[in-house]
C-alpha cells in the first residue's frame, strides 16, 4: 500500500534527500543537488508539491538543507520560491527555512539572495552547527 501523504526519496550521489509530508505541510530538500538533468529528478516531486499546493490551503513549511547545488538546481529553487510567495500573498502561511553551515557564507548568501524577492512568505535563515 502506498502512503499518499508522504513522499520520500533517498539521497543520491548528486541528488538531495526529498522528504515531503503532505499531511503535515512540511517539506524538505537536504544534501547536494547537481544532477545534469534537473527535470528528470525534480519534475515528479515538484509536480506533486505544486498539485498539493493548489489543492490545499494548509500552512506550508519548506526547509532547505542544501550544502551544494548547481545553477540548474538554482532555477528549480527560484521557481519554487515564486510559487510559495504567490501562495503567501494570497494569505496562506508559508515559512521557508534556509539552513546553512556555520562556515558556509556561500549557501547563506545564496539564501539571502532568494529572500530578497519575498515579501509575503516568511524566510528564516537557520545556522546549523
Amino acid at each position: 500500500m502506498t502512503d499518499m501523504s508522504r513522499l520520500i526519496i533517498a539521497a543520491g550521489v548528486r541528488t538531495p534527500k526529498v522528504t515531503f509530508a503532505f499531511d503535515k505541510g512540511e517539506f524538505c530538500l537536504e544534501g547536494e543537488s547537481y544532477p545534469e538533468d534537473v527535470r528528470a529528478f525534480y519534475d515528479a516531486p515538484m509536480g506533486q508539491f505544486y498539485d498539493w499546493l493548489a489543492a490545499s490551503s494548509a500552512p506550508v513549511r519548506f526547509e532547505f538543507k542544501l550544502v551544494y547545488f548547481n545553477s540548474s538546481t538554482a532555477k528549480v529553487i527560484m521557481d519554487l520560491m515564486e510559487r510559495l510567495e504567490e501562495a503567501a500573498s494570497g494569505g496562506r502561511e508559508c515559512v521557508i527555512d534556509w539552513h546553512y553551515a556555520e562556515d558556509d557564507d556561500n549557501i547563506k548568501e545564496l539564501g539571502e539572495e532568494f529572500a530578497e524577492d519575498l515579501t509575503s512568505a516568511r524566510f528564516q535563515l537557520v545556522e546549523m552547527s
Partner: peptide
C-alpha cells in the same frame, strides 16, 4: 544571475543559462 533565473533560460540553452555567471 537572479534576473536570468527569473526570466528563464535563453533560447538554445539546455541548463538554466546561468552556468557561466556562476
Amino acid at each position: 544571475m537572479k534576473e536570468q533565473l527569473r526570466d528563464g533560460p535563453p533560447e538554445g540553452s539546455k541548463g538554466a543559462g546561468v552556468g557561466w555567471i556562476t
